[in-house]
């Protein structure tokens, strides 16, 4: 267990480094490039209402007159301690804006994150039992199709079919963001389904590629020539190896779910962090945008870390390869 423990520690340290770089990217993206947070907050056409002195005074108040490196250090420390500061114009704490939406979105996203791989694995196993067969062809075709569908289109199709035609669910969610969890979950069925569609397609395609490669390998041939039944070949011998590419794609998968959450919340008017992000961006509320972006990256990195640990558990060979994947 000891080498595994040290590898996990190593990955953890690496995640810290990446988080630092992410903070840097967020900082550069929102504050440094064209001007600073203040200029980003106040659009060009409103600047005529402010004098240069106003700007200088506000900069000093916000600490924006300090050198970028100092501000970056402060921002990084604040972000990793989950202290998101206050908004620039109204001076309200950012956490107050994002707390409930985050909880709501987490409720929805965590169902998708758990269900999606299970569906992908089930489809992958069914397709792998007869590679090149009819079921394989249909599943692959349908996933390639759904992989190509924009998620806001999928969500709207769900509304048209399930809400308008079948009347099974409300089309637009009229629910306060402080609603209790059970209420949020009860209206999350369509959004979660829409979220899963493209996620399943992505994961299934990676799993299928892994399966195809694994089923061609010599150890599968040996097991088959030893009379091991087909279902054991697929589930016991091949699956753990075939899962590795899918798990390596976890960062992309979680990132896709986060992007999906934003879009799908906009379609259903789901009171989550996605709607909050859109609001913050359109109102140019830089600290809120920074906080949400950072948290999104945090989720991606955490998901990836878990997947790395899963790979270590599945593939004993990976425990020896201390080098980069």
């Amino acid at each position: 267990m000891n080498p595994i423990f040290s590898m996990v520690l190593r990955r953890l340290a690496l995640s810290g480094v990446i988080l630092l770089l992410v903070a840097g990217i967020v900082f550069i993206g929102t504050e440094v490039l064209p001007g600073d947070a203040l200029e980003a907050t106040i659009p060009q056409d409103e600047r005529i209402y402010y004098t240069d002195e106003d700007f200088d005074r506000m900069r000093a108040e916000l600490g924006l007159d300090r050198p970028p490196l100092v501000r970056f250090g402060e921002m990084f420390v604040n972000l990793v301690t989950f202290d998101f500061g206050t908004t620039i114009l109204t001076r309200e704490p950012v956490i107050g804006y994002i707390w409930h939406p985050i909880i709501n979105s987490l409720l929805m996203a965590s169902i998708a994150v758990i269900v999606t791989p299970l569906v992908a694995i089930a489809l992958g196993a069914v397709a792998a039992l007869k590679p090149g067969g009819r079921r394989d062809g249909i599943i692959s075709g349908v996933t390639l199709f759904s992989y190509s569908m924009p998620d806001f289109v999928v969500a709207n199709i769900f509304i048209i079919v399930f809400a308008l035609q079948l009347g099974l669910a409300p089309a637009i969610l009229l629910i306060p963001e402080t609603a209790p969890a059970w209420q949020i979950l009860s209206v999350s069925v369509l959004p979660v389904m829409a979220l899963i569609v493209s996620g399943v397609a992505y994961q299934f395609r990676l799993l299928r590629a892994g399966m195809q490669e694994t089923l061609r390998s010599e150890f599968i041939e040996r097991a088959r020539l030893s009379g091991v039944p087909e279902w054991r070949l697929v589930l016991v011998h091949a699956l753990p190896v075939a899962l590795v590419p899918m798990l390596n794609g976890t960062a992309q998968f979680v990132a896709g779910i986060v992007s999906g959450v934003v879009v799908i919340e906009a379609v259903f008017k789901f009171p989550g962090i996605g709607l909050e992000l859109i609001r913050a961006i359109s109102q140019r509320e830089v600290p809120t945008v920074q906080a949400i972006t950072f948290l999104a990256a945090f989720a991606v990195i955490a998901g990836n870390l878990l997947a790395d640990i899963a790979v270590l558990a599945l593939d004993p060979r990976a425990r020896r390869m201390t080098h980069d994947k």
Partner: peptide
């Protein structure tokens, strides 16, 4: 590590933030 960092920010969010600036 730089690519890791950029890719940790979901594409849509990164695009949205960058378009803002």
């Amino acid at each position: 590590r730089l690519t890791d960092a950029v890719m940790a920010v979901p594409e849509l969010l990164l695009i949205a933030v960058l378009v803002l600036t």
